[in-house]
């Protein structure tokens, strides 16, 4: 009895701490789960960027082009998005080249997708097509981004907990607890969204002449420590690149290049830049496979392939591990692309 009396104040304190912990945890989960729905909503709206880009590009190809205009089409996926076509046009003009470049990148573009619009591309009669490619374009599995290095966390991962204990129950299956991997990142995203004055993260067209859309978050340049942090959370699954003769994506790309060349359109290929963190994660066999793809393209069509892959690894111009920010401070990328174009025009 006496022991119970002496223990009582301690029990009260322990109970209070437990209550405080659970209240804090509850608030934490509630805020993040509520926010998740808001973010998901915003992501849903941002998904419009795909359809909206396609709509814009469709209208672009259907327009009546000036027959005297010498057009350059820059094709590729979201890694091309940061190429500032306005800057390139100014650069070419300064160098007395009467060309007009259009950035026609769209997110998650693949050679198969591009093939569907090849007819309209050819009918638009560009003089040059500049195509940016990377190893990512030749995977069999496109969704290769995964979470890695799950850090030891003060907070238990409810997913694991429930998977272990109640593997058969699906009540939590529809919830995403990824925010536990880096609560700070989620908090900051949440604050940014809350402080935003516009009602939505509406996509904007960064270069007036090009049917390319970006969201405001694409312009953010991440610091090196943020990139490092991102690299510790995001990882890539390298499922391997099929050899050139079996690689369906390469076969499609070659078909595109062949058709373009047949229609007297000059094709220039370049490899898109990657961050040092992404490059470090690529296994050697993957690099070799991609090199064999490049050799195959170069030898089949007799074209130069320019490499920008390692050019900006140490610069603070990255939006994430594989994308340069759509930002004026990242103009070096557009500058180098402009130089490639000028060199090829003059050759």
């Amino acid at each position: 009895m006496k022991l119970l009396i002496t223990l009582q104040p301690n029990l009260k304190i322990i109970l209070t701490v437990l209550i405080a912990f659970f209240v804090a945890l509850l608030i934490f989960f509630l805020v993040f789960l509520l926010n998740q729905y808001t973010i998901e909503k915003r992501i849903d709206s941002s998904l419009d960027i795909y359809t909206e880009t396609r709509r814009l590009q469709k209208n672009f190809y259907l327009q009546n082009f000036d027959p005297n205009e010498k057009r350059i089409f820059i094709l590729g996926s979201s890694q091309i998005q940061a190429i500032n076509s306005t800057y390139i046009n100014e650069y070419l003009s300064i160098n007395n080249q009467n060309y007009k470049a259009y950035n026609l990148a769209y997110p998650a573009e693949t050679p198969e997708e591009r093939l569907k619009t090849l007819d309209v591309i050819i009918s638009a009669k560009p003089k040059i097509v500049l195509y940016g490619i990377s190893n990512r374009d030749f995977y069999t599995d496109v969704q290769n981004e995964i979470s890695i290095n799950k850090p030891a966390s003060l907070l238990p991962d409810p997913r694991e907990l429930f998977q272990e204990k109640f593997g058969g129950l699906d009540i939590f299956a529809n919830h995403n607890f990824d925010f536990l991997e880096n609560p700070k990142l989620t908090t900051l995203t949440m604050i940014t969204l809350l402080l935003r004055t516009e009602p939505q993260d509406k996509p904007v067209q960064p270069y007036p002449e090009s049917p390319v859309l970006m969201q405001s978050r694409d312009a953010i340049i991440k610091s090196d420590s943020e990139m490092k942090q991102l690299a510790s959370i995001v990882g890539y699954r390298f499922t391997g690149i099929d050899p050139p003769e079996k690689n369906e994506k390469l076969i499609t790309l070659k078909k595109i290049i062949g058709e373009l060349q047949k229609n007297n359109i000059k094709v220039i290929i370049f490899t898109t830049p990657q961050s040092k963190y992404y490059l470090d994660s690529i296994p050697d066999y993957e690099k070799k496979s991609f090199d064999s793809i490049l050799t195959s393209i170069s030898s089949d069509f007799g074209i130069n392939i320019f490499s920008l892959r390692d050019n900006y690894t140490n610069l603070t111009i990255w939006n994430d591990l594989t994308h340069i920010a759509v930002n004026k401070n990242a103009i070096i990328y557009s500058e180098d692309v402009a130089k490639i174009l000028l060199k090829e025009i003059q050759s």
Partner: peptide, 17 residues
């Protein structure tokens, strides 16, 4: 006070000790 402290830690924890 404890809840406040815990919330600040939870919300701004970068996932890696």
């Amino acid at each position: 006070c404890l809840v406040g402290i815990m919330l600040l830690i939870f919300f701004f924890y970068n996932g890696k000790p």
